[in-house]
């Protein structure tokens, strides 16, 4: 193995920690060297979980910088991307009777946020292992303060550690969408519990169970984390 690399030596394919399908290449779905941080608020949906049938991905817009902490306060930038949106394909929009610019909720096991639907042909349904899998794409620049505000995509993500650089997997997860606005106050907890039950076992993904502390050989992010 090349010196310093914690997985390898050759590139290969594993599914993301959360995936709508199983790995076609190996019996193991996920990278065995990946770090999972098992906590009740950081649960991973098992492969093909019917409650979270869509692929969730996050990305940047040129108008904003990181989570928007600087750009959301600058009118010249904030004006150009003023609201949180979720990009979906016309196919998925039709399925859920969503029109462009409607409010929708995006739900994962970790949380739920509200966004405006941006229906676009740019977002293509994927053909994975013979099934059609839809994608939901979110910019991650919004939050609760600034000239423009909106749901924080980071609320939906898991915390995990890629074996070499210990960066979490923020670009490939699974989610569900619910048309309409996100309930506030006590109704929010009820809503979240309905679509993503907040009680039950901490570990839902079968491969998270087999992960042992220290397996990946350590890293700077280990300190202070809660491990199972």
């Amino acid at each position: 193995m090349p010196k310093g690399l914690k997985d390898g030596p050759f590139p290969t394919h594993y599914e993301p920690l959360e995936s709508p399908v199983s790995n076609e290449l190996y019996s193991h779905d996920t990278n065995p060297a990946e770090q999972w941080f098992a906590r009740q608020e950081n649960r991973f949906a098992p492969p093909g979980d019917p409650r979270f049938p869509y692929v969730l991905t996050t990305y940047r817009l040129t108008e904003h910088h990181t989570a928007g902490g600087m750009s959301r306060f600058l009118s010249h930038l904030a004006k150009l991307q003023p609201e949180m949106f979720a990009e979906i394909s016309p196919e998925l929009a039709t399925q859920h009777k969503i029109n462009n610019a409607d409010y929708i909720c995006v739900v994962t096991l970790r949380g739920a946020i509200e966004a405006r639907a941006l229906v676009s042909r740019r977002i293509r349904p994927l053909a994975l292992n013979g099934k059609t899998v839809h994608q939901v794409a979110l910019p991650y620049h919004y939050g609760t303060a600034g000239l423009v505000r909106g749901g924080a995509a980071n609320d939906l993500l898991t915390i995990s550690g890629e074996p070499n650089v210990t960066i979490m997997e923020a670009k490939a997860l699974t989610c569900n969408i619910v048309p309409g606005r996100l309930p506030r106050g006590p109704a929010f907890a009820e809503f979240l519990n309905k679509y993503a039950p907040q009680t039950g076992p901490t570990i839902l993904h079968p491969e998270e169970r087999s992960f042992r502390k220290g397996q990946s050989g350590g890293g700077h992010a280990h300190e202070g984390k809660t491990w199972m």
């Binding site: 609201e83 949106f85 941006l118």
Partner: peptide, 8 residues
């Protein structure tokens, strides 16, 4: 700036 409107 003349307002913050998302146009969809």
């Amino acid at each position: 700036d003349d307002g913050f409107t998302w146009l969809g």
